[in-house]
Structures are given as structure tokens and as C-alpha cells.
Design a protein around this nucleic acid. Sequence first.
DNA 1: AAATTTGCTACAAACGTTTGTAGAGCTTCA
DNA 2: TGAAGCTCTACAAACGTTTGTAGCAAATTT
Lengths: 341, 341
Amino acid sequence: MPADPKNPVTLKDVATASGVHFSTVSRALNPATRNLVKPQIAARILETARTLGYRPNSLASSLRTKRSGVVGVVVPDMASLLFPPILEGIEHNLLKEGYMTIVANSANDPQRHRRILEGMMERQVDGLIIASATLRDPILDEWLQGHAPIVLMNRTDEFGRAPAVLSDDIKGIGLAVHHLAGLGHRRIGHIAGPASLSTGAARLNGFLLACAELSIPEAQRPVVTSAAFSREEGRRACVTLLAQNPDLTAIVAANDMIALGCYDVFAQQGLVCPRDMSITGYNDSPFMDVVSPPLSTVRIHQRDMGLEASRLLLARIAGQDMPGDVLLRPQFIARQSTAAP
Amino acid sequence: MPADPKNPVTLKDVATASGVHFSTVSRALNPATRNLVKPQIAARILETARTLGYRPNSLASSLRTKRSGVVGVVVPDMASLLFPPILEGIEHNLLKEGYMTIVANSANDPQRHRRILEGMMERQVDGLIIASATLRDPILDEWLQGHAPIVLMNRTDEFGRAPAVLSDDIKGIGLAVHHLAGLGHRRIGHIAGPASLSTGAARLNGFLLACAELSIPEAQRPVVTSAAFSREEGRRACVTLLAQNPDLTAIVAANDMIALGCYDVFAQQGLVCPRDMSITGYNDSPFMDVVSPPLSTVRIHQRDMGLEASRLLLARIAGQDMPGDVLLRPQFIARQSTAAP
DNA sequence: AAATTTGCTACAAACGTTTGTAGAGCTTCA
DNA sequence: TGAAGCTCTACAAACGTTTGTAGCAAATTT
């Protein structure tokens, strides 16, 4: 029962209440230093602290110790289904270690991105997990030599200036292309993600690479780039892809949202999937098994990505440096959006 | 270019570099007090602060001013599709005012819930948005008279001890029931959410009320309670509901996840929706328009809920107290999971 | 019995801010 | 010329911790 909501009880209050110096209270309350104070006094202090409703002030403690116990997480798009499971994984690991996470949504807006990073740094975060990096990221430059360790997630930058936790996009898209080729498709279009994002670029590379392996001629593997990883932009890209390539039998979309956009276009143009057109997504976002038709897609283990990123960050905070990146193994999930042409 | 990543530049550094006292630097840097310092000196200070790469330390500032510029948000389940848009709305409003949000996931675990709230309070959050309240919430008690204003969201508690932003669940479920009745259904089952949550209880009440209005006899409106708002528990509940009531023609599920669980059971038992069975959800979670069949559901404007909750919290932080709750108007979205029996 | 060690506690400084107050230099007016 | 007022800046205290150091009593050793 804290006496007064307006004047929270401090170390000093506990100290006077138990007749010792407040530094003694500090030691008694901290398990690591409790052995420095006589057991019965420590017990008395703990008791009065409890009855007074003492609650430590992290700000003061952090100011002194230079450790805030807070890490920042920046995602490019909160509403994307990709991130909730990732965040869950991150938080799971961090809370275990006593950290809390402040998360913010850059909304793919550089201005906002900068403000968010500034806010986090001013609040003295102990580390940063950034899922919103672009390939050439001028904003990132300012922070990489800052005092807080940074881990990139899902996307990396052009030069790998910070350790990253990524899906192996090249391999993942390869799985999708080989799956389609195995079904007999020879005219496969790709709707690429933005070229400014490592995911967009890597998946495009993976697509081209796989087509080369299968010796699909250049004319039979058209590529259209979507302006964003969104359902709307997926729609637009799909319309142009289909218009320019009427003989296509399959589409490899750079992610699930784009694939859903394609679904919309199919419905609009009277195409039945997978009879008239096969399509694959990427990410295996939640509920892709229940859309119609259930989407064949490349699964990335989202929670694992969060777990790995936080594990890596904790290691870096502890001073153990990590030389390379973590590449998560993707897995192809065949559902009903793909069939023989 | 901050000189040394390990020793960040402080007010004092800027002060010595520009030959003034550090308190003068503080005033010069703060737009509100800048008029107290001679314009040319202020300009010089700003300039050296910029070149030195000065970045204020929020912790120190907060310690002094007793305002952290951080608010806490607690959600019961990060992976639920309900919360990302809500969080987006919250963050939108708060970032505008210079606040950052620390969000945590109670995972419906009281132990964890308590730890999270403690962590947030210790970190001196200026306010709290709680989406994880249970009807009789012993944990909540401890914090309601704490120093940080609290706003409940999506769920409220039994006594309305804190202002809440809610969907009008009674009305919302009523919309669903009347829709089904309008199609000709007279034997309608309800899969209720947990009775310990206000959403579960209110939607059950709404269901009973609407059935009473339509004078559907008690025997024709069976209710089964699901242990959680999840697809898995929805499946289990659906199985028992169907087993006990073979003549049912429609189900009103307490939320979309439960409805998806029912989809699974339908598929398993060879029931074709909506031919053999109609079903409605609640929330209109993302992508419910693209599941098969597209789910008829009650839409709550999730981003608005986040916007309202944050608006209300900001008002309370500013000292303006809000007498009542905010009830968001729900809207029924008819899709293809409902048809005449 | 004196000297040394041990166990414990009090004191004080520091972390980086904000902000009340005192005072220095200047102008203004009698 | 001296008092009074006005601008501006320096000083210092405070926010609530953590932690190095000093000191004091009791316990141990010689």
C-alpha cells in the first residue's frame, strides 16, 4: 500500500522507516549485494520495503548504471502479418532476461524512421533490432557506430554493416520455382518486391538463378516489380504482368500479400486458381492455409526469427561479437494454389 | 560526429566547448526557455551541440521532470490478428506527441501479466493501455491507484474501475443474430468466449438478448463456451455444440478465430458452409474477406480503437478526466458464410 | 593483552538533466 | 553621479539510484 500516489516511496523512505542508511537498503534489496548486510537487518528491510510498497525507479538506476534494460524494435509495417509472431519471439527471449521492448512502426517513412531511432537512442536503449532497413540506408549510418548494439532482422543492408537474421531468400524462392517446374510449368512470372529492400532483391535473384538452373529462357520468365509488399501493389503489378504475358501459367510472388493481390486480380479476370494459373507466396503468414485456395508458399519460421534476433542481440549486449549473419532455412509448403498447367 | 561511442557527449561537454555554463546550454536547447538566453549565444550553442553530435539523455531528464515520455501497452496475445492495427493506431497518436510505447504480451498468463506491469511501472511509464484485463482482475487492483493513468481497451473489468474503449459487443452480436434471423434461421447456436473476459460475457449477453427479442425459444439457442478465443478451442467447442444439437442451422461465434475453428470442423465433418451451416465471426480481422468462404462478421474499427484509447490516455495524462467509457459502433459485414437455411 | 582481521554500516560522490536564485554588467532615469 | 531596473549568465540543489571508501565494533590471531 503505497502511501501517496503522488509521492512514491523511495529508498530513503524505506531507510528511515527501518532505521538504516539508504545505501544499506539498496544493498539489501539487490540480491547480488545482499550478502553484504546482516541477515536479520536485511530481512527487516525487505519486510518494510514490502509493507511500504516500495518500487524501484528504473530511471534513476539506469542513469547510474548506464543500462536501461530496454531494447528498441523497429518494424516497417505493423499491420503486416509477418511481424506479430516475430515480436512475440523477441519479447519472449527479452522478458526472460528482464528486458522490456519498445516497439515502433516506421511505416516505411524515412522521416519517421529517423525520429523513432532518435527517440530510442535518447531513451538509452541497450540495443536495437531493426526490421526496417533498406539496402542503402543513410539513416543506418548514423547509428551503427553509436553506443547501442544493432541487429538487423528480415532485411539487411547492402554492405552487411550489422549482423542480420534473415530468411535464406535465394534458396526459398528456388524451392518455389522448382516446385512449379516440377509440376510442369515452363512460363513463370515473378512479381518482385521493391528493389530497394534486400528481400525484394534477394528473391528476384533467387528467381533468376532458379530459372537459369532449369534453363528456362529469358522470354519465359518475365518479371514485374511491385512498389510495395502490399496487396494493393500486388494487384497493380499482377495486372501488368498478365497483360504483357498472356501465356503465363504460373506466378511466383515475392510475398504472401502480393499473392493475395493476385488472387483479387484472378477473381476479377475470371481466372480460376490453380486451374488457369498457379501461384506461390512467401512467408507463410498466419491464415494462408485458410484463404481460398489455400496458398502454396515458402514458410519462414517467424517466431524463430524473433528468437534468433533477440538471442543475437543479447549476446552482443553482453559483449560477445557475432562475426556473420544467421540464415534461417526456409521450407516450401505446397497447398492448393499450385497445380499442373 | 559524436567523439567517442563509449562516452556520449553531455550538456557539460557542449558547455565547455562553447564557453558557457551547462545550465545555459540546457536553456538554449529547450525551445521553451530559449528566450532566456541571448540570441547569438543561443545560436552558437545550437551550432556546437550539432557539430558535437549532442543527444539528450532522456533518463536524466525524466528523472528530474518526472515525465518519462513512455507509455506501456499490454496485449493478451500478440499473435492475434486483432492487435496489430490497434497498436498501429496507438503508436500513431502517441508518436505525434513525442511519446514512445513499450508493448508487452501477457500471453494470458497472470504471472507474466504482473511482471510486465511491474516492469512498466518501474520504468516510470506516464500511462498504461491495458487490453488484457479480466473481469475480476486482482492484478489490476494494485495499479489503479498508482501514479500512472490507466485506460482499458477492448476488454473492461467488472466494475468499470478505469475508463475503457470498447466495441459495443451487445449491439454487435445483435447485428449478427438479426442478420441470421432475417435469413430465416431459427435454431442458432452460440460459441461463447471465456466467461472471465468482458468480451466473452458481453457477447453472450448480446446473443441471449437478441434471441429473446426474436422470441427464439431457449431450446433453440444453445450455448457452448470456448476456453479461449482461439482456433483450437473453437474447434473443440464446435464439436460439442454440433454433437449436442444436430438440428442447428447457424452458429454465432464469439470471434473470428473461433469461427475459423468451426471452419475446420465443418471441413472435417463434411458440412458445406453456408449450404449446410451458416456462421458469423466477430472483429473482422484482417483477411477474413479472403478465407473460404469469406466470413460474415461484425467489424470493429480496430485502428479507431487504438486511436481512441491513446487519445483518452493522453487526455488523462494531461489531467482531463474522462467520466465514462467509449463504445465504438460495430458494423455487420455480410459475406459468404451466411445464407438461408 | 595487544594487534590484526572480519563483518557490517554510514558517508559521499556520481550519473545527466531541469530549474530556482543570486549576481554581474548594462541601460535608464532622477 | 548614483540608484534602480533589466538582461543575461553562473551557481547550486535536486531527482533516486549505485558503489567506492572510511570507520567502527566484534571476532580472531599472536
